[in-house]
Write a protein that binds this DNA or RNA. Structure first.
Length: 401
RNA sequence: GCCGGGGUAGUGUAGCCUGGUAGCAUCAGGGACUGUGGAUCCCUUAGGUCGGGUUCAAAUCCCGGCCCCGGCCCCA
């Protein structure tokens, strides 16, 4: 027996239905803001991620040498690949450029609930716009994503690392340890820092700098407020986000425990790192698996759809039944056929257990008369109808493709 | 990587403390029922995570691996 590798998952039909449902909701939300999907390779040169995240990332990546001696890594996130794509091929695209992605990422970490070695991210990058409305809109995509998915209990926190760093500089505390302590809300933080990160009203920023950034930050918050986006101001967002340059935000689902962060992003500079002309950029990534976990706690479900019809033939009529099933499918129906040669009783039982709307009986009588017996499996009613009428029961459009 | 909890048929569980026949439910397959279903009854398949130790005897006690779970770290 083989087991799946540690930290990976298999998804059965029911779970895939849920994943597709959430995926579609998020896609629709992103697209409602004019974003278009892109896709990049699952592996990249290892250096790409080191450039973006620092050498520490090497410990959590799946890195290997290919037969040509190239150092490659399974991507641990998708922002760097998308920005690499931008730098390589899309610098001349009209701005603002709105790109979104959905796909798996890989990290070698100890798995637990909400943390897997293969996990999915859906996110976006907004390239070439840094006005308050650009950033506010970007954040509002993330907010709407959670709302549209039906997540009840989540919290959007918005901070600004430029303002935070400026403050820490002014008191001589702009260092990694302090940032880490702030992020963890370490109670041993000096009072002046606690006071700073406890501010929850933009008005209080009056005497803090830098002035243009404070104004930008306040404009972003104002725009969100006026549009009805609920958030809390939190200047204590300070995760190892070296490449973030201004407004940053996180969304968390408190009921998830240790792995409660389901979305994170902000304004950043990366293009230059990858050899492109400098451009203002912002974006975020949603932890798809975590979001789904949080949603399921709120009762998120997707039903597996049964077929429209279940065609049951007899030994003598198999070829007619087989052909009929195909005609119905071409007319737009989802049709299953009895494949195991069960008797009528078992076949009907099967049809209703998989949730088929109708059973279509194709026996010798039917073949002779050209009228098929169709039975409504929920009401139990049945009657005979010719092929044409039967086909008219199928949804005529094939928009599903 | 660190600290802690756990792993019994496909799934959910009982037994473990106080070693000695592994039980129940459900699902799946088949039958009662050879053209009419969700019911009932019967039958079948199928199990103590893996390796080592203690013992006459290990699901049960001890050690290690693997996997899952809670937390730390880091992050989505």
């Amino acid at each position: 027996m083989f087991e799946r590798p540690r930290g990976t998952r298999d998804f059965g039909p029911e779970e895939m239905a849920e994943r597709r449902k959430l995926e579609n909701i998020l896609r629709r939300t992103f697209e409602s803001y004019g974003y278009h999907e892109v896709m990049t390779p699952t592996f990249e040169h290892a250096e790409l991620f080191v450039e973006r995240s620092g050498p520490g990332i090497l410990d959590e990546m799946y890195t290997f040498k290919d037969k040509g001696g190239r150092e490659l890594s399974l991507r641990p996130e998708l922002t760097a690949p998308v920005m690499r794509f931008y730098a390589q091929d899309m610098q001349r695209s009209p701005k603002p450029l709105k790109l979104y992605y959905f796909g798996p990422a890989f990290r070698y970490e100890r798995p637990q609930k909400g943390r897997y070695r293969e996990f999915w991210q859906m996110g976006l990058e907004l390239i070439g716009a840094d006005t308050p409305q650009a950033t506010a809109e970007m954040i509002s995509v993330a907010y709407d994503s959670m709302k549209n998915a039906g997540l009840k209990n989540f919290r959007l926190r918005i901070g600004d690392v430029k303002i935070l760093k400026n403050f820490l500089d002014s008191i001589g505390k702009n260092d990694r340890d302090t940032m880490r302590a702030i992020d963890k809300r370490d109670t041993e933080l000096p009072d002046e820092i606690m006071e700073f990160i406890s501010m929850n009203n933009p008005e209080e920023l009056e005497n803090h700098g830098p002035e243009d950034e404070v104004e930008h930050y306040r404009n972003v918050l104002d725009l969100l407020s006026s549009a009805g986006v609920e958030y809390v101001m939190d200047l204590g967002i300070a995760r190892g986000l070296d490449y973030y340059t201004g407004v940053v935000f996180e969304i968390e689902a408190p009921e998830l425990g240790a792995e409660k962060q389901i979305c994170g992003g902000g304004e950043y500079r990366l293009a230059e790192l990858f050899g492109a002309q400098p451009v203002a950029t912002s974006g975020f990534a949603i932890g798809f698996d975590r979001t789904l976990l949080a949603l399921k706690k709120d009762g998120f479900k997707a039903e597996l759809k049964g077929p429209d019809a279940y065609v049951i033939g007899s030994k003598e009529t198999i070829s007619e039944a087989f052909a009929l099933a195909r005609k119905m499918r071409n007319a737009g129906c989802i049709v299953e056929m009895e494949l195991t040669g069960k008797g009528m009783g078992k076949a009907l039982k099967k049809a209703s257990s998989i949730g088929s709307k109708y059973a279509v009986l194709v026996g010798e009588d039917e073949v002779e008369s050209g009228e098929y017996t169709i039975k409504d499996l929920s009401s139990g009613e049945q009657r005979k109808m010719p092929l044409e009428e039967l086909l008219s029961l199928c949804p005529s459009d094939k928009e599903g493709y």
